[in-house]
Design a protein around this nucleic acid. Structure first.
Lengths: 144, 144
DNA sequence: TTGCGTTTGCAATATAATTGCAATGACCGG
DNA sequence: CCGGTCATTGCAATTATATTGCAAACGCAA
């Protein structure tokens, strides 16, 4: 039995509007985290107002259906959170290119217990991003 | 022999202005990463214009003397990068409290070689932040 | 289909960051 | 120590990003 995103949203107690469904679809189809503006750009006509996109991204994030990704940029980015797969990013310092990858292992539990015992924080999630130079920019740098 | 921050800046080819020295001092004395606005607030009079703070933070970041920290907030934060210590953050989802810590071990090199071999990116740095619930907010949640 | 509570579009507003330009400041050579 | 040069600063305007109030439109349970 398939569970549509609309059903998920309704089960969580909110009306499944067109905007919400589209945002989840757009993010699910994107290999990269998207900014609100990019999401709006990918909306089929009629495009909603930008404020609707912002409001829905906040709601979906608070419901745990999307996740915000911080990449040291001016604007936030969002990714789908419903496919369970935990992903990390590599960002090129030269050209800004973003690549996602799913780590073979991502065992930060020793660190998380450190945090638990030292700071008494319950850690619920983490965000791990890498910054470096992509092949193209490396070649360009070498060439100089 | 002591090396003042002014000397460091000059050696890198830029005039050592008052603003630059103060920013480095303020960040060096802060246990937490600060936003540009917070940094401005900590400036002794006469306070510079906000644009000066932004410009100098960009410059100091490009020189590698400060580092920006992304905590899923609207504004960037900055920390001193000259004390060598690599730090991570734990942010409370309830109240926003930020704690810094220096991990006992932070060995992400297996992940970084993964990235190197799979994506051919040269990884130069990473950013690892944790999000959870602090003791106070946990108590408050339980109490409800 | 109807009614009710939520969401949307729109416009205004808030917040963060960037830029152009004239005046000021840093610092090198003498 | 002083003057000249070039970078930096303050100021004001501008852009980018995000948030909010409110009336009209929509989603959905019965």
């Amino acid at each position: 039995m398939v569970t549509t995103s609309a059903e998920v949203i309704r089960k969580l107690g909110y009306p499944a509007t067109r905007g919400r469904g589209e945002i989840l679809r757009i993010l699910a189809e994107s290999p990269l985290p998207l900014s609100p503006k990019e999401i709006l750009g990918l909306f089929p006509a009629p495009k909603p107002d930008a404020s609707t996109v912002y409001r829905n991204l906040s709601l979906l994030a608070s419901l745990g259906l999307v996740r915000s990704v911080a990449l040291h940029e001016r604007s936030r980015r969002y990714e789908i959170a419903t496919d369970g797969a935990h992903r990390h990013r590599v960002v090129c310092k030269g050209c800004g290119k973003i690549e996602s990858f799913q780590p073979r292992r991502c065992d930060l539990s020793p660190l998380e217990s450190d945090i638990r015992s030292t700071l008494d924080f319950d850690v619920e999630e983490h965000s791990l991003e890498f910054f470096g130079v992509c092949p193209q920019c490396r070649r360009r740098e070498k060439g100089r």
